[in-house]
Design a protein around this nucleic acid. Structure first.
Length: 277
DNA sequence: CGTAGACCCTGCGCGC
DNA sequence: TGCGCGCAGGGTCTAC
């Protein structure tokens, strides 16, 4: 799936094209996502206007003028596609949103997700933050709440490997598998190091690395990898330079050691044994 | 409590 | 060419 920068890129793309559009119809073709899609929730969208496009962690939040919010998570393989309603259907086009009065007139927004790890809900806008999906989430990595004080307090006494710690949404949201490895490389921290055994100075380096790598990726328009597409359905972006991710055996660009791969929590981690301690 | 592992699902690339 | 295997950017739940 898209990581935070990809979701942010999709959010911006959808906002530019669909802000102000009205939902004329919704078709549910396959309800079996991470949680079953509820028709009674989708019914709340009929006639509603999409007013605001937000993001929280890796969730897309599309507010309507009916005090409801269309919540979409793309999971590993989800995409949002804007096109003509007559466009040929893909086997994994699970939801079709017929929109009118968009900047481009009548268009169809599709949620496509082969692996079906994604999620589509319609919730009361006022209850988003307190909803079970969001209540446990930690600070946004690019916001002021992701402070050194927060990181130091969260890491204190923790024996988890810092890679797993970084990917724990209760600590900070939006740091996925690619950028966790990349941020640790930038900070010179070994992914297996216990979170509670990193000095405040090095945690500050890590905080800066997380923010820098995410910011750069957003600027680059999202890393393009495998099946990722922007809202137009195009593969148009240039990937930011990934220094270790998926580069096992290659030379580290900083110290020339061979990049290694290991598995943590069932996920691949890439790091440089020469310059990450 | 904290942590490791299984699980949800399809598609793709690889080695045989 | 076909087949089986491992692996893939996420998140949640269970068992220990």
């Amino acid at each position: 799936m898209p990581e935070l920068p990809e979701v942010e890129t999709i959010r911006a793309g959808l906002a530019a094209r669909l802000q102000g559009a009205r939902v004329a119809d919704v078709t549910l073709r396959e309800p079996r996502l991470r949680a079953p899609v509820q028709q009674d929730e989708l019914d709340l969208l009929f006639g509603a206007r999409l007013t605001r496009f937000r993001r929280r962690a890796k969730y897309l939040l599309m507010d309507t003028d009916r005090a409801t919010t269309l919540v979409v998570h793309l999971g590993m393989s989800g995409r949002m596609i804007v096109g003509e309603a007559a466009a040929p259907l893909d086997a994994h086009d699970h939801l079709l949103f017929d929109l009118i009065e968009s900047r481009e007139g009548s268009v169809q927004l599709r949620f496509r997700d082969p692996r079906r790890f994604g999620l589509v809900r319609v919730l009361a806008t006022a209850e988003i933050e307190s909803h079970a999906l969001f209540a446990h989430l930690g600070p946004e990595p690019l916001g002021p709440a992701f402070s050194l004080d927060h990181l130091v307090a969260a890491a204190a006494g923790r024996r988890v490997p810092v890679k797993s710690f970084l990917m724990d949404a209760r600590i900070v949201v939006g740091v996925g598998n690619i950028y966790a490895s990349e941020a640790l490389w930038r900070a010179g921290i070994h992914p297996r190091r216990a979170a509670g055994r990193i000095s405040a100075a090095r945690l500050e380096r890590l905080r800066g690395a997380v923010r820098a790598v995410l910011r750069e990726a957003i600027e680059a328009g999202g890393t393009t990898l495998r099946d990722y597409r922007d809202p137009d359905g195009n593969l148009g972006y240039f990937a930011i330079a990934l220094r270790v991710y998926d580069r096992a055996g290659e030379e580290c660009s900083r110290c020339r050691s061979a990049v290694r791969r290991l598995v943590q929590g069932g996920r691949a981690t890439y790091y440089c044994p020469g310059c990450q301690r």
